[in-house]
Each structure stands twice: as C-alpha cells, then as structure tokens.
C-alpha cells in the first residue's frame, strides 16, 4: 500500500476518534444533539473509498481493543468487544466498506451536484444504516438469545438518527469532493 494511503487512513481514523471526543452538537434542523462518531464511519467510506475507509475504521477498533478510550463516551478496552452491542462495532467495518464501494461506483465527477449528493446518500444509507443494523441486530439477537424481532424493536429508536447522519454524510461528502477532490486518486 502506498504511504499516502496509509497516512490518509490514519488521519481519518484520528478524525473519527475526535468526533467521538468532542461534545455532541445540534444538527441544526432537529433539536436533538447527536454524537458524530458513527457519522465519521460513513464519511470514511464517502471520502476515502472502500479500501482506505475500511482501514481507517479498523484502526479505530484496534486502538479501542488495545485499551485506548477512543470510542464515544470514553469507551475502550476489550470489554467493548465482549458486549451485546459489539455487533455494531463489527458492523462499522462493513458499513465503511459498503459505503465506500458504492460511492466509488455510483458517484462520478461529471455528474450534476444533485445527482452526486443523492448517490452519496444512497451509499451512506446502504452501508451506514442497512448493513450496520443488519450486522448489529443479528449479533444482538444471537448473543442474548432474544430473537431477531425483539432485537430489531430494541434498535428501532436509533435508526432515524442514523438516516439523518447519512444525509449529513452525503452533503459533507459532496462538499469535500468539490473542495478537495480525492475521488480520482481512489485506491
């Protein structure tokens, strides 16, 4: 892997961690504060593409596993990988991968701004919501033995927030692509 890609992934991992450290901010149009860490996961895919985005998320998880409190709310250590919600952390890897892959194949430089934005949104929604919750809910259901339907009901409350984050990720992805185009050099 070229050194530049390694550095990009490491820098984005640091951005994801910082998004978990800073106090939650208002989205602007809804009066609920959100933690931005899972937004960072979608953005890793949208901005860096599948390969580098996945490496960025893996780095965050390795740092958490070796005992650094890098997850939102100062969580970290091996215990977060032994919890009923561990499936969502595993899901992050595939969320970034799917979001990145779909962004790479769906979004082109020559598309109109609106089309780019909508395509980024679809990519972030597929990866950051459908794949993420698919893995998270499956894990929760299997580990606790509560069954899929109940695991789904228990997770339902968080889905609207993550759909909103997909909107933000799409808008930010388009703005970054216009302001500092990384897409043509995607690995």
């Amino acid at each position: 892997m070229p050194t530049r890609d390694l550095v990009l992934a490491a820098l984005f991992a640091a951005i994801i961690i910082v998004l978990g450290l800073v106090p939650p901010v208002m989205l602007g149009f809804i009066p609920v504060p959100i933690t931005a860490q899972s937004l960072g996961v979608m953005l890793a895919g949208v901005v860096l593409g599948a390969k580098r985005g996945t490496i960025a998320v893996l780095l965050v998880l390795v740092l958490a596993a070796i005992g650094l409190p890098v997850l939102s709310g100062g969580r970290g250590g091996l215990a977060v990988f032994m919890a009923p919600t561990t499936g969502y952390l595993i899901g992050w890897v595939f969320a970034a991968m799917v979001t990145g892959y779909l962004s790479q194949i769906m979004v082109g430089r020559d598309q109109a701004g609106l089309v780019q934005g909508v395509n980024f949104f679809i990519a972030a929604l597929m990866g950051g919501v459908i794949v993420l919750y698919g893995i998270g809910i499956t894990y929760l259901a299997l580990i606790t033995g509560m069954g899929f339907v109940k695991a789904f009901l228990g997770s339902l409350a968080f889905i609207p927030g993550d759909v909103l984050k997909a909107v933000i990720a799409a808008l930010a992805g388009r703005a970054v692509m216009a302001g500092y185009p990384l897409l043509p050099q995607r690995a």
């Binding site: 530049r4 550095v7 990009l8 820098l11 984005f12 640091a14 951005i15 910082v18 998004l19 901010v25 208002m26 989205l27 602007g28 959100i34 931005a36 937004l39 953005l43 901005v47 933000i168 808008l171 930010a172 703005a175 970054v176 302001g179 500092y180 990384l182």
Partner: peptide, 17 residues
C-alpha cells in the same frame, strides 16, 4: 453545526497527508 464544522475539518486534515 455538524456539517459546517466537519467539511473544513476533513479538508484541512487530509491536505496534510
């Protein structure tokens, strides 16, 4: 706001790469 913070943050940071 999240969006107006995150875009300059990403661009400024990745420019260092």
């Amino acid at each position: 706001r999240t969006l107006s913070i995150i875009v300059p943050l990403i661009i400024l940071t990745l420019k260092n790469a």
